[in-house]
Nucleic acid binder design. Structure first.
Lengths: 205, 205
DNA sequence: TAGAATAGTGACTGATTACTATCTTTTGAG
DNA sequence: CTCAAAAGATAGTAATCAGTCACTATTCTA
């Protein structure tokens, strides 16, 4: 009962994407085969091609799955937070928490960014990062309007740094092979980031 | 005359590594084949295996080549700079310049970090990053001793952030597909980083 | 300049891979 | 309960790849 072998197409596609993301958490994305994905799902390899036109389409679906969820998570975290810098912090922590819950995500997205010639999936990744940047920039601009940022702060660089900040934690987790540890390190990392952008040092953390 | 086909083994290995790094600048590392590396060098595929025991050994040599050079570059840039924060800045700019000169390097190293099960090459990458971190930490500690850093600054997070800062620029260059642009963005990125760690705002940049 | 040592060629092999037919089983609507 | 449509199994295929090997061309040394 726990695992029906015949599933409706929508659900099978969902399971495929989840299996792929989960596998990326412990194997190199580039060496993942359709056979490996299928066997993880308890299904034969040929069955995948009833639901996806190609292997590339599976990657595309996975990236779309991630993009949708990460943006929703981050938006939900920032929603209702009036203070822009607090909203940035909420986004930061939500982003890191999402990664900790899905350790395969950084490897999967990084793997897609490795393609220099854009594919459908890599275009989605680039689009995700651009939307993310735009959201960061609008929050930074709002903070600037409120006089909370350093005079002469390069907002573009500040948005890049935000992403780099997450990326630094991810890189560290890959070296140490400890993904869950990034949640503990995240507050200190954002504290450092905030000191880099805001007008002057307020209270002690 | 310009391209002899028979080369001594040392030189052929060097050329192989250079070809690999150059190819990583425009192709996905994971899909690079020995045939592709060989054809770029004007040599047949089988010839590579006279100089390398396996494909894995080629990757290992490439990572060693990069590790040696990037550490030397960064050390040379910081050498003789008495002020620790100035030394950090010199390292930062030297690092970014190195990447701009070798656009394949980030993709190659990131590709190696994708392997969750450590290989000889990925161990070298992790070792490189650890040595790098240690060097950063010692500079940060020296700056701290001189009272140049914020009270209560998390030095570990500061070292991570430094690497993340470079990584943010790299990520941006991958999205925009413009590697040389990171050199122009580097000073602003470091300026932001410095504001995050140092004791108080000095003069205007 | 002979000839040994080194470097490269070309043809090959076994393993792996994405993808595809053809057949069988399951599911759900009337 | 029936039966058509959907989902999966089985067994392929052609292509690709790392690595091998016997042979040939080049280079260096004595």
């Amino acid at each position: 009962m726990s695992q029906r072998q015949h599933l409706p197409a929508d659900e099978r596609r969902e399971r495929t994407v989840e299996a792929l993301i989960e596998l990326c958490g412990r194997e190199e994305p580039a060496t993942l085969t359709t056979g490996r994905i299928a066997s993880r799902m308890g299904v034969t390899q040929g069955a995948l091609f009833r639901h996806f036109a190609s292997k590339e389409a599976i990657w595309e679906a996975a990236v779309a799955w991630i993009a949708e969820r990460v943006m929703a998570r981050v938006a939900a975290a920032a929603e209702g937070v009036e203070e822009p810098l607090a909203a940035l912090e909420a986004m930061f922590l939500a982003h890191v928490a999402f990664i900790a819950e899905h350790p395969g995500v950084p490897r999967l997205l990084m793997g897609q960014l490795q393609h220099p010639h854009p594919t459908a999936a890599s275009r989605l990744v680039r689009g995700l990062l651009e939307r993310y940047r735009r959201r960061l920039l609008s929050l930074l601009e709002e903070a600037g309007r409120r006089g909370q940022l350093r005079a002469g702060l390069d907002l573009d660089a500040a948005a890049t740094q935000f992403i780099g900040c997450v990326q630094g934690l991810v890189l560290l987790s890959m070296i140490a092979d400890d993904v869950s540890g990034i949640v503990d390190r995240a507050p200190a990392a954002f504290e450092l980031y905030r000191h880099g952008i805001r007008a002057d040092a307020g209270g002690v953390a």
